[in-house]
Design a protein around this nucleic acid. Structure first.
Lengths: 343, 343
DNA sequence: TCTCGTTTTGAAAGCGCTTTCAAAAAAAGA
DNA sequence: TCTTTTTTTGAAAGCGCTTTCAAAACGAGA
């Protein structure tokens, strides 16, 4: 069957009006006399007509698509942001074009290069790993919203979480429990996120006059496996910390598993905190103290900024910073006297 | 800056040829004499020209976009499939339009209704929750690939995992360990997946002559929280099982946490198995025995079917079934004599 | 009933590309 | 050198919509 696609002409014919009128019924209904409008609407319903987004897009220079770039959609933190953003975008009639850089910076850039800008009305970049200049260049041809990293001093709409404060609170909390030796599994040094957080962590430690020697800063990939593997390396060290912070819950949970396998008691022998407060954090054993990251809010806000931008074609750039809060669970406690030395 | 967008005319002018020639250089380069071709290519490079996908789409009736529908992108199982599918699609030059039904059947249908079919070249539906007739109707206007549920007897490309065999193996494994009372947290009865798996589980139990009374079939939402909550309900029952199967790792892990909180030993008092073999399964404690679901293969295969379909405009329908394998970890063991009654 | 100011309508010109068709150019054959 | 065949090219007609502009229809005031 599939009666050959109806076009605006079909509708115009059947309704006995011109295509301009049909077009108006769709776009500025109040400018069409009621009688005709109803007639056109009827025909449209009857023929189950829906206008070609391509033709409309070509004429209006807008397809109603918003791109979303993520480092890795299988990472739940990414997915939660996308989920929230999509919801908001959909409400405003936009569809989502998803791009995944697979945590590869080159690939991210290659995508910006290869995807025709006209294909989307704008792009939301989540945890982008490029330079400010890259995004600035991109933003010349396309509305851009940067979500995740702060990207300071760049005239582009962007929003981030207050990581400096988050780390300050986290370290303060551990300090209050009595911890002095704290290791930080910062993620990968190859990522902007990893580099940045090392700084924030360092500063937070300094503020409390806590030592932060190099060996307390541990590189690992942003995965369960990465945390697990890095924990193994740490176990070989002599100067063992009393607490560790993971740059994501994944890293923390991976590490926790490794320590548990080694017979350590958590939080007895070692306190662990994560970052993200992913749903899983509540359900692992021991449950994981974590820094709550407002994924939903971030996605929603990013979508809103984008919608405003696309709608009003405004060029002003907003900057939003969302708070991070410590969520205390079972994986943290005061350090016990019985330390690892006892083995 | 952003010099006003270059069009094919600009290129034609600057290269001193007609737009037809420019078009040919892009689409059938071998039909253009080398000299001109090079000249055009040069100009294109110089002006950093890229053709409007919209105009091209309008003319060729194809935008190069493939839709992917998922129930919930924050569910890692979904995300892994999308990740794999995207990779494959990208290799063939397609982009991905993501749709999320938010586990709402009505919403899923609404999306099919509202998104103009011309907007994409085809759609891959992952764990769709509609009726065969719904998909059949959809497939009239658009290439469709169904991935996840078997959707038997429907002339649409589809692929699924061999759930009947998976459950058979799983139950056989538990039976071999000595388990007789097995509860199944099947997910939500409102979902096709839940309904279907009840059947498979029942059949697997029957084959081993194991009783499968109603109270062993437990409804829960497909989340960590769902498993946790359902486990709480189960704890109130008298006839406690010696093993439980979760319809997803999430459910299993949520349930496990609840049992652990109640002081049960796992696998001592209760064996638990999940479904999916998500990355997390290895890292929870105790690590989770699970049925390995080939998310990557599923996504990749789905993408391949779609690509073939779109390319050759073929109407034949393929059906692929992927195997599920039991991955044994720490959460399962023979039932101990010391049972819950001992409390 | 006739103007004049409004509102409503349709014709036509794009939007930027592909593709057909016939003409022009090049190559091959005589 | 002159045909004939083959290859390469450009003009023009879409693809399905929006939008401008001017004409047509309408309603109000005189």
């Amino acid at each position: 069957m599939a009666a050959h696609r109806n076009t605006i002409d079909t509708i115009a014919d059947r309704a006995g009006v011109s295509i301009s009128t049909v077009s108006r019924v769709m776009n500025k209904p109040e400018s069409v006399r009621e009688e005709k409008r109803k007639r056109v609407l009827m025909v449209m319903k009857e023929l189950d007509y829906s206008p070609s987004p391509l033709a409309r897009g070509l004429a209006t220079d807008s397809l109603g698509l918003i791109g979303i770039m993520v480092p890795n959609i299988t990472n739940q933190a990414n997915a939660r942001i996308v989920y929230a953003a999509m919801d908001r975008l959909e409400q405003s009639g936009f569809r989502v074009l998803l791009f995944d850089s697979r945590e590869d910076f080159e690939r991210e850039m290659e995508i910006y290069r290869s995807v025709p800008k006209k294909m989307m009305d704008g792009i939301i970049i989540i945890f982008g790993n490029g330079e400010n200049s890259d995004y600035l260049a991109l933003a010349e041809g396309l509305p851009v919203v940067l979500a995740g990293p702060p990207n300071l001093g760049i005239p582009i709409d962007r929003l981030s979480s207050d990581e400096p404060a988050g780390f300050r609170n986290l370290v303060k909390y551990l300090h209050a429990l009595g911890h002095r030796k704290i290791s930080f599994f910062y993620g990968s040094i190859k990522t902007k996120g990893g580099q940045r957080r090392i700084e924030y962590f360092r500063r937070a430690m300094e503020e409390l006059n806590l030592a932060c020697p190099e060996e307390r800063l541990i590189d690992c990939s942003w995965t369960l496996e990465g945390g697990y593997e890095a924990a193994g390396r740490l176990l070989a060290e002599k100067d063992f910390p009393t607490a560790i912070i993971g740059s994501s819950d994944q890293i923390a949970i991976g590490a926790m598993r490794r320590f548990l396998e080694d017979g350590l008691l958590i939080p007895g022998d070692l306190s662990i905190v994560g970052f993200d407060n992913s749903p899983m954090a509540r359900y692992v054993t021991p449950s994981l103290t974590s820094l709550d990251f407002p994924h939903g809010a971030l996605g929603e806000k990013a979508a809103e900024l984008m919608i405003a931008k696309v709608r009003h074609r405004e060029c002003g750039h907003e900057e939003l910073v969302l708070p991070l809060e410590v969520v205390i669970r079972e994986s943290t406690a005061p350090p016990s006297e019985r330390r690892r030395e006892s083995q």
